[in-house]
Simulated scan of single mutants.
Amino acid sequence: MTRPTPEELEAARDRRIDDVLAGGLAVLFCGINPGLMSGATGHHFARPGNRFWPALHASGFTPRQLAPAEQRELLGHGLGITNVAARTTARADELSDEELREGGRLLRVKVERYEPSWLAVVGVTAYRVAFGDRTARIGRQERMIGGTRIWVLPNPSGLNAHWTLPSMAEEFARLREAAGLPDARSGDRG
């Protein structure tokens, strides 16, 4: 895949990308919103410095590190991806609190419809605003949406430097274990 030009990235502003979603998933990962690289490519967590895909593999959710273009393969592992806010921006701080609250409302509707076992929101600050929970911390939340449990994960953006890839993978692995999913790397031979 060729890297989008600066003009293509700017043209991706305010685009929406498709969810990777099906009913009854084990874990539905939920980003804050797509970045410009994701908007330009149509793939979630597409920016090269984003640690979502490495953390997903290092924590045992996938047998190998997937590329953003392989995002549909997540469904075969009982995993999916959506976002709190649908529109693409250069930075998450371009979203208003109102947008995040409305995104949280729409996310609850989506979760009630698709009924994943777990909703994993990547980004505690966005979770706090979207769900009106100022005291939320990384980890399992008391709140549920219907029968769906909620886990808040660290934001995998490269801008979130106080979380290293190993510490992020540990938190992702805690969720995987809570979800009762086996370590998918155990059969990895390459």
Rank of each mutant, 00 (worst) to 15 (best):
G190F: 13
K110Q: 15
A86F: 04
N83F: 11
P166S: 06
T2F: 10
P48N: 08
A12P: 02
D97P: 04
V129C: 01
A46G: 10
D133L: 08
G104D: 08
A67L: 15
E99R: 05
T41V: 11
A120F: 02
G39C: 14
P34G: 06
R51I: 01
G146S: 07
A161I: 13
R16G: 06
G49W: 07
A69V: 13
P34W: 03
E98T: 13
G180D: 14
G49E: 15
A178M: 04
A184K: 05
E102T: 11
A92K: 07
L74C: 12
D133I: 07
S157E: 02
D133K: 10
F52M: 11
G147R: 14
D188M: 08
P4W: 08
M168K: 06
L95Y: 09
G123T: 04
A85D: 07
T2Q: 14
H77I: 00
E94D: 10
F45I: 04
D183T: 09
D18W: 00
A22H: 04
W118A: 01
P4Q: 09
L21S: 02
A22I: 02
R174N: 10
L165H: 13
G76D: 11
A11Y: 00
L79V: 05
F52P: 00
E70W: 12
E170N: 04
A26C: 00
E142N: 01
T62Q: 00
I17V: 14
A40R: 05
G147C: 03
E171A: 10
R105Q: 12
L28K: 01
V129H: 01
L95V: 06
A169E: 06
R149G: 15
G132F: 08
T135L: 11
L106S: 06
G60C: 06
L119A: 03
G180E: 14
M1L: 10
A184Y: 02
L175P: 02
G180C: 14
E73S: 09
L100W: 07
E98L: 11
T125A: 12
V152M: 03
T125L: 04
V124L: 08
N50K: 05
L56S: 05
V122Q: 13
I17K: 05
R185I: 03
R91V: 10
R143I: 08
V124E: 10
